[in-house]
Design a protein around this nucleic acid. Structure first.
Lengths: 261, 261
DNA sequence: CAGTGGTCTAGACCACTTG
DNA sequence: AAGTGGTCTAGACCACTGA
């Protein structure tokens, strides 16, 4: 099972660069140049050991670099593969526009429909609880809040999960406190109750996932998460909802439109 | 140099969880609970080897998990440390508001001033070139563009770099083609030339950095980048600039305001 | 100088996938 | 059963840091 010569270069013994980095460089270059394409199997560890004449740990070290960069994923018993880039969903900044709510659509399904993909909500949980310090500060320090937790899947793949927090005096006893908030989602219900929405603030961060986030979103190594915190304000300037969301970064591109004024 | 007993637990030999993962779990828990704080030195590899009675590679494997999660950074010859979280700059969605330009400020300095930090621009390069396919598509397929490359530093730390692209028929022969575009930045110059700005589109992605990005931004392992592509439109609907920016994700939080209409 | 992490070797046994 | 990656050992030598 010799590797085709020329597919990967030879090591440069005069280089200061560590051997495992040189091997990683060769593989990365081959991926970048399209000699390996998405989903292709990279040479096995055994093949690389033979090709370069190094120990297995050195080869594994090289492969782990590529995984950390998000370029490769390993599958136990199968091989190491060029990481397939899943289709990316575009979240437009008009996703909460009133016209969508008026049509009875929630923000998530609006986007999913536009892309023609199958979306599901899963592990839905609604309960009353004490807000965290951060959520309390954003909502004007309510003693308790209604928390709506859920996870979203696109074509069967979990891509985001998060929690909506609403002050209890707004949410208690309404359809917002039901698992299914009805057509148009909770924003439609808020407006029906007289909380006419004025604007949303969104804060965006990116970082590597916690182990819990890796499990919940089935994240490959080398895939960050986007942490989005949205606060909804009514026309009286009151914060009526905070939504804290973790998204698989390889599944989304966020799009915003800013006025130049 | 024995480790204080109780600081880190003991291995569970009955657990299915790999030893190096258990060790990583112990360290992560200690960091989360504040037993190690930002900048603190973690136990040395030697100490961990003795404490757990495992080989050094097992301990290194555990530590590399924490580095991949962005929780720890190693420093050759010094130790492994809990990663310090640098101060985060907030980029507000009004950073391109006309009132800032009218005051002679560019978007970057507006934000830096607000935060009271020292900002610099470096490795500035201005040249004419053929646009990439993506940039060309966004700008309406100009044959050539003016490219303005630069890197920004905050308090001496490189935090973002990127390139502005402008159609050559707009930029050539103007101050936009000079290294220093003058007060208010290139957007002020565009408006002076009759390209009154209407709005900006921003696209946001997050991913792990390429080796080049790691070098340019001096990124620690486990720190993703935010990839932001902004397109500026004038009141006639023409795209007059595309700005492609890579940001160290641990240095920024992006803030947007969305109308509810 | 002693202590630290960085690189590398040459094995071993295991768990998983595929034919 | 053969091939793959996952885990782990017990060494070795090196480069960097700091007292």
């Amino acid at each position: 099972m010799a590797l085709p010569s020329g597919l990967l270069g030879a090591l440069d013994p005069t280089s200061d660069r560590a051997v495992f980095r040189q091997i990683a460089d060769h593989l990365r270059e081959s991926i970048d140049k399209g000699r390996f394409r998405e989903g292709d199997k990279l040479p096995s560890e055994t093949e690389l050991v033979e090709h370069y004449g190094v120990s297995r740990m050195t080869v594994r070290n090289a492969l782990s670099i590529l995984q950390g960069e998000g370029l490769a994923v390993s599958e136990h018993g199968r091989g190491v593969f060029v990481r397939p880039r899943p289709p990316v969903r575009r979240l437009a900044s008009d996703r909460f526009a009133r016209r969508h709510r008026d049509e009875g659509k929630s923000a998530f399904t609006v986007e999913a429909e536009a892309a023609g993909v199958h979306s599901e909500v899963d592990s839905l949980e609604v309960k009353e609880e004490k807000p965290s310090q951060d959520v309390a500060a954003r909502l004007g320090s309510p003693r308790k809040v209604l928390a709506r937790r859920r996870r979203y899947l696109i074509d069967g793949r979990p891509v985001e999960f998060g929690t909506s927090y609403l002050p209890l005096d707004i949410a208690r006893g309404t359809q917002i406190a039901e698992p299914n908030p009805g057509p148009g989602g909770i924003y439609a219900r808020l407006e029906e109750q007289g909380h006419r929405l004025d604007h949303f603030d969104e804060e965006i961060r990116a970082r590597m996932p916690s182990p819990h986030e890796v499990r919940t979103l089935h994240l490959a190594s080398g895939v960050p998460v986007i942490h989005l915190i949205r606060t909804a304000y009514d026309t009286e300037g009151r914060a009526v909802e905070v939504c804290d969301t973790i998204m698989a970064a390889d599944a989304f591109v966020l799009a915003y439109q800013l006025p130049a004024t």
